[in-house]
């Protein structure tokens, strides 16, 4: 188990508890009372810490190395029914962007999402979840295929950004994202988006335009990462906590701004602390959302979606 800096008091108590239990097992000393006390304190500390998370702490949780990634959700949601489909039919199969067909309940979905790795080797293989233009083009190809057959689209957002590379620019990173955003606004099937980790800027929005946007409790979504924001506006990475606050990037903030529709609760301490619970909450949220959307005609669906995005923005006069 990995602990974040603000989780250290929890770590300490958990270690104490463990020691206490060992003493109880290995000697005749009765430690039940002590163990109980520590446990009580542990629960209180957990509650205290996790109920009052700062924006930056949520950013840290969204990047927690134990957090479930797109393919973990796909496996949990679809089981054996998932059939991964590869390639943009043009240049490459982008490993940072995965897609395919699967059943959630009785319903087929075209599922698309950024994929991160879980160790050094797979992180490189997945390019740290940073897609290239071919990733966005693969996503669009799959969405168009879903549209053709009337299959709803589910996108899972988890990216530190679109890949800022030389070749990515040569192949038109901006164009690829722009094309996706435009096509998604008028795709004739329901689109449900769930932010499961990091929602960084255009790299996230490139598969993130939809009818309903759900956001897990400990995720962030904004125009820039707090670190980059800090380094641009404060000329140093040191102000990332302030930047995180200022950007209003948490699920609660995003819901207030009506950019996301629903916040999906996570188990205490984050999605990774109890994966099964997380999966079942997410699954229910997706199916409930789909129930709300499936009745609409293609025309109504697209009109509402365009209307929704047309209404975002705050102006005076």
């Amino acid at each position: 188990m990995e602990y974040l800096d603000f989780e250290l008091p929890i770590k300490e108590l958990e270690e104490q508890l463990q020691k206490c239990q060992v003493i109880g097992e290995e000697s005749d000393v009765d430690v039940t009372q002590t163990c109980k006390q520590i446990e009580k304190k542990l629960q209180a500390t957990k509650k205290d810490i996790y109920k009052n998370l700062t924006a930056w702490q949520r950013v840290q949780l969204s990047r927690h190395p134990d957090r479930p990634y797109t393919l973990d959700y796909v496996k949990a949601l679809c089981g054996d029914t998932f059939l991964e489909l590869h390639g943009d039919r043009n240049f490459k199969d982008d490993k940072a962007m995965i897609g395919g067909l699967g059943k959630i309940g009785d319903q087929s979905f075209m599922i698309i999402g950024q994929q991160k790795g879980y160790n050094t080797k797979t992180r490189q293989y997945r390019n740290f979840g940073m897609a290239n233009p071919e990733g966005y083009r693969k996503a669009l190809r799959l969405m168009k295929s879903a549209e053709k057959f009337g299959i709803p689209v589910l996108t899972l957002l988890d990216t530190p950004g679109a890949y800022p590379g030389l070749e990515a620019e040569e192949r038109g990173q901006g164009e690829a994202i722009a094309r996706n955003i435009l096509e998604m606004t008028r795709l004739k099937v329901p689109i449900i988006t769930v932010v499961i980790g990091e929602g960084a800027s255009g790299g996230a929005l490139g598969i993130g335009v939809g009818d309903k946007i759900l956001m897990l409790e400990n995720t962030w979504y904004s125009v820039i990462s707090p670190e980059s924001c800090s380094s641009i506006l404060w000329r140093s990475w040191e102000f990332k906590e302030r930047a995180a606050d200022a950007l209003k990037l948490t699920a609660t903030d995003m819901k207030k701004m009506k950019i996301v529709d629903e916040i999906v609760k996570e188990p205490l301490g984050g999605a990774h602390k109890d994966r099964e619970t997380t999966y079942s909450t997410v699954k229910n949220a997706i199916l409930e959302t789909y129930d709300q959307l499936k009745g609409f005609s293609e025309k109504d669906l697209v009109n509402q979606r365009i209307e929704k995005y047309a209404n975002i923005g705050v102006v005076k006069g």
Binding site: T81, L83, L85, G87, R89, L101, S108, S145
Partner: peptide, 24 residues
Amino acid sequence: HGFLDFITLRSELKDKVNQYIDLI
């Protein structure tokens, strides 16, 4: 290079094709 959706063993061909058809 992005031109195939997947590679399948011939022994799994019938399953994979029908799985795709059911899903889509």
